[in-house]
Nucleic acid binder design. Structure first.
Lengths: 223, 223
DNA sequence: TTGATTTAGTTACAGTCTATAACTAAAATA
DNA sequence: TATTTTAGTTATAGACTGTAACTAAATCAA
């Protein structure tokens, strides 16, 4: 039993495993998109891949592990989208605006995945698994990054200021407390807006969400 | 088969039915609180009430109907809490602040119920059932009401302005578009803040949510 | 190339659930 | 008191997760 290769080239079997895992995730994503997280079923995925249900337990320890991996992938994907958008923006203000719009777009394009990330913790899966938290932080850091330069926010009052400072420090961001707070509140508002939009609340009021969003975004810049 | 009494005094049986339905809901609420909406199980409730599972289908057509009723009750309860808080406030500004704080408190005290209302639509249950929508609107109207007087928001640009006006009209609120928009965005921000707080995001950053909330609330007043 | 070993898949099963059907017993009603 | 309604029962179908025991195929070492 040679020490499991970290750097060794993948064997045929490893590639096969990776392939199957990928296909399983794809099938799971499709189910997620169609009927929400609760409908992701190991059995059904097996059927779809032409294999018995229990076979998939060779690849994922449990349904929850599968969902957790979907969530981690989604965080990575979201972080990537935010980073790309913020790179495209010219100057601090526009960079943040671009990231915020990208946040919304990502959520609208794949509402099920957004809900997987920010919706209620699901049936059994552990929303506090370390890899999940790390992935979430990574995504958050991108947002924080876009604000790092833009900010002209007012300084938070004391107990908060040091909490914010120590939080920013622990994720090696150079941002001061004011920036950190602005970033966090920006995230909070973005999440609020987007999750109501995804749930269809604006549409059911006959409102145009895109325009509403631009207004909220403007407030974010100055607020 | 006498026409089912709408106004007739409730018979013994009707009272009994109401009682059982109430007990079922209580048991369901307890499960909800402990393990989330996905864990609400007809079977388990039956066991807890000392009755077989299928017996409960005399009282609720399906698990989804039960969840929907829980949601409607929750909306009513939330609306009540908001109304009480806003009545207590003296003057427009404080009234809105009181309602906003009540919104947060309600959510923190019963996070599971809050998630039932505003989390992802669950497995099967129809988030667009009419009674549910009505209940949601009623709660929303309370918030709108508290803002009706307070507002000094800027007027929204055109396509939105008329959408907002017609929305406000259709729920016989006298509020103009500026007030309506302010109310909606306030709700959006409240929801964002509260749902991140419930999910433990602020706590996991070492931040004091109560203080953060007060800052966001202040921004809401002026933003 | 052959033989031992690992691994991918199988079926069978235990145990959870929702929901329906067929039936019994009790309560309300005429 | 006789009839009808209703609350409950058990049995069952059909879905799911996850484990166990087993088979067959691929890999690896000699």
């Amino acid at each position: 039993m040679a020490a499991a290769g970290e750097s060794a080239p993948p064997t045929m079997r490893e590639r096969y495993r990776a392939q199957v895992r990928h296909e399983v995730k794809q099938a799971a994503l499709a189910q997620l998109a169609q009927a929400g997280p609760a409908a992701v079923s190991i059995s059904a995925i097996g059927k779809q891949l032409g294999v018995s249900g229990p076979a998939l337990y060779r690849y994922f320890a449990s349904r929850d592990e599968l969902l957790t991996e979907l969530a981690i992938d989604a965080y990575r994907d979201l972080a990537g989208a935010l980073a790309a958008a913020s790179r495209a923006g010219q100057g601090p203000g526009p960079r943040f605006a671009a990231a915020a719009r990208a946040y919304r777009s990502w959520a609208l394009e794949q509402p099920h995945r957004y809900r997987l990330l920010f919706g209620p913790p699901l049936p059994g899966y552990d929303a506090h698994a370390q890899p999940l938290i790390d992935a979430a932080q990574a995504a958050m850091n991108v947002l924080l990054g876009t604000l790092g330069e833009a900010d002209q926010a007012t300084a938070p009052p004391e107990p908060l200021a040091s909490q914010l400072a120590s939080w920013a420090r622990s994720y090696d961001h150079l941002a001061g407390p004011a920036v950190a707070m602005h970033a966090i509140l920006a995230w909070s508002r973005l999440h609020g807006f987007v999750s109501l939009e995804i749930a269809g609340n604006y549409a059911s009021m006959g409102l145009d969400p895109a325009r509403l969003f631009e207004i909220e975004l403007a407030a974010l810049g100055t607020g």
